[in-house]
Computed example of a mutant assay.
Amino acid sequence: MKTSIRRSSQKLLYVLACVVMAAGMYSCAPSTQITGTWKSPQATSRTFNNVVVAAMTDNVQARQTIEDQLQQQLQARGIKATKSIDLFPPSMMSGSESPADMMLDRITSDGFDGILTVAVVDQETDTRYVPGNTAYAPVSRFGYYNTFRGYYGYMSPTLYQPGYYTKEKIYFLETNLYETSNENLVWSAQSKSYDPASLSSFADTFSEITVKKMAQENIIN
């Protein structure tokens, strides 16, 4: 009897360890990732050192947060970066008949060599099934173990937890880098983000992986 209980306990510990490892692996899966990039053949020897970052959204908080994080990541690599919200506040943008022309005039005259834009190009809702949990309770000294009725009545609610369906938002983003002198597209990246926990955490992760990819592809030093 003792041997059987010990084996059951060892088996339970093994299963729990596997569950913990699986949960850790799932939670560590990247919620935001780059799915593809493109680089102009004419940009092989061109690097950028003075960039305007522009999040293309009318949500002022999202624009501020994303541009903040991109600016920090670029500056950490020695790149001068300026947020578009500092150059072109929302009040200025809403009152301009041709914001693109107005922005280019200012960006060119201020000596910027690149414009880095970020935009959400699509979004989807994904329905995912989360399986239920089962549990094993070893024999103990408590009274409800003494009869089937008492044991079943007490333990059955905890032995099985049914699964459920959950919905997750998937956001598809596009990041483009344009050369100021000729307005040509130099580099582009496609990304997707799975149900980000918060705007801040998304902006932090997105900016880090984007700027890292730009460095890996020799877009910036």
Rank of each mutant, 00 (worst) to 15 (best):
M1F: 14
M1D: 13
M1W: 14
T3C: 10
T3R: 13
S4A: 15
S4E: 14
I5W: 01
R7T: 01
R7E: 06
S8I: 07
S9M: 15
K11Y: 13
K11F: 14
V15Y: 05
M21C: 11
A22W: 00
A22H: 02
C28I: 04
A29W: 09
S31H: 11
S31A: 14
Q33D: 12
Q33A: 13
I34W: 03
T35C: 01
G36H: 04
W38C: 06
K39M: 00
K39C: 03
K39A: 03
S40K: 00
P41E: 02
Q42P: 11
A43I: 01
A43E: 03
F48P: 02
F48W: 05
N49I: 04
N50V: 07
V51Q: 07
V52L: 01
V52H: 05
A54R: 09
D58Y: 13
N59K: 10
N59C: 00
A62M: 07
A62D: 04
I66E: 02
Q71S: 00
A76D: 13
A76H: 11
R77S: 09
G78T: 10
G78S: 06
G78E: 01
A81C: 00
T82R: 01
S84E: 03
F88V: 06
F88L: 03
G95A: 09
G95F: 11
S96P: 02
E97T: 10
S98E: 14
A100V: 09
D105M: 13
R106N: 06
R106T: 12
I107R: 08
S109Q: 11
D110L: 12
F112L: 01
G114P: 05
T117D: 03
V120S: 11
D122K: 13
E124A: 13
T125N: 14
T125W: 14
T127N: 12
R128K: 06
Y129M: 07
Y129E: 09
N133Y: 15
A135W: 10
Y136D: 12
V139L: 15
F142S: 15
G143V: 13
Y145N: 15
G153F: 07
G153S: 10
G153C: 07
S156F: 12
P157Y: 11
L159N: 06
L159P: 00
L159Y: 08
Q161N: 10
P162Y: 05
P162Q: 09
Y164A: 06
T166G: 01
K167C: 07
K169D: 09
K169W: 05
I170L: 02
I170W: 04
F172Q: 00
E174C: 08
T175A: 03
E179H: 09
E179R: 11
N182V: 08
E183A: 09
N184A: 10
L185P: 03
V186P: 05
V186T: 04
Q190M: 08
Y194A: 15
L199N: 04
L199F: 04
L199P: 06
L199D: 03
S200C: 11
F202L: 08
A203Y: 00
T205W: 12
T205E: 09
T210G: 04
K213L: 00
A215D: 03
Q216V: 06
Q216C: 08
I219Q: 00
I219M: 02
I220G: 01
N221L: 06
